[in-house]
Design a protein around this nucleic acid. Structure first.
Lengths: 155, 155
DNA sequence: TCGATATCGTTATGATCATAACAATATCGG
DNA sequence: CCGATATTGTTATGATCATAACGATATCGA
């Protein structure tokens, strides 16, 4: 096995000597999300579902039919993005769409029977997966993390 | 102004009645990262740089020349992804590449003079930006968050 | 009522992101 | 030395992701 290339670094620049990328929250958040997402895909990937797709289905399961735009806001996706996700889920008959009778601008999205059945199958798996992601933390640390992340996300 | 469409939800499903998407870390992490990333783009977007691009430049600044593959691991990007980022930075003359003399597989990436100058200009901005993202938290909460995120990212 | 304004969904563009398959190079074990 | 194995970088595919511009519809205010 060739050694991993940890070759000695070239001369390190020291103009801003106390700066470290690891100290930037954004970088840590990105890595933590990668881990969580990877855990999820490892478990539900066999269903050919991504994390955003699962979130979309789960939200519809919680709330029932929603306009495409509101659905997007509830899963933190821009209009252009939620559109694509809905199209893929629709192609697989997991969701169905219809026009809102009173507001012609709206497209209402809802789970199909197959979608409901799938979500109910996936929820326990997702809960397991969350447990896996949180495994390195104790119970009180988990509560704390939720509290802190919640504040960050709100702004 | 038309009202925001918070139209009453259709009948809520209750088979897994205690499940909430908000309780899933992955979802919270994604939203928190979106916030952090958005804060960064708001400040450095005028330089036409994304968060991953900035991370790449910052890592090269810290460590000096690195192979493309190692650089990717140090910024948490897959080989296929770091390749594209490097290509864009190279096109803008912020990094330069050369073949490693002893290991012909490796492409060494390093900052150009322009790249160094840009990073040194951006670092203070990024530090400010991190402060903005962390604004909702007190000092001890921030330390705690770093600790917890670090453990999650490690696994 | 009617024009100004806001929202919804679409389109287009460009940047991540992960995965799998592949050729070239390097290293290891016998 | 040399075949098995590992690593590096590339290519291809498909799914996010954010942004800006746009037409259609809805609402507000004068």
């Amino acid at each position: 096995m060739p050694r991993t290339s940890t070759k000695a670094a070239a001369p390190v620049r020291r103009v801003a000597s106390d700066y470290r990328l690891e100290d930037q929250v954004g970088f840590l958040l990105r890595k933590a999300y990668q881990r969580a997402s990877s855990n999820l895909v490892d478990r539900i990937g066999s269903y050919d579902l991504t994390a955003p797709q699962y979130a979309t289905l789960a939200r519809l399961y919680e709330r029932g039919a929603l306009s495409q735009n509101l659905l997007g806001r509830l899963v933190a996706m821009e209009p252009a993005n939620i559109r694509d996700v809905v199209l893929r889920l629709k192609k697989r008959r997991l969701v169905a769409t219809r026009r809102d009778a009173t507001d012609k601008r709206l497209i209402l999205i809802d789970l199909t029977a197959a979608g409901v059945a799938l979500v109910e199958q996936l929820i326990p798996i997702e809960i397991e997966c969350t447990a896996t992601t949180l495994a390195p933390l104790k119970a009180d640390q988990r509560r704390l993390l939720y509290e802190l992340l919640g504040r960050l996300a709100e702004g």
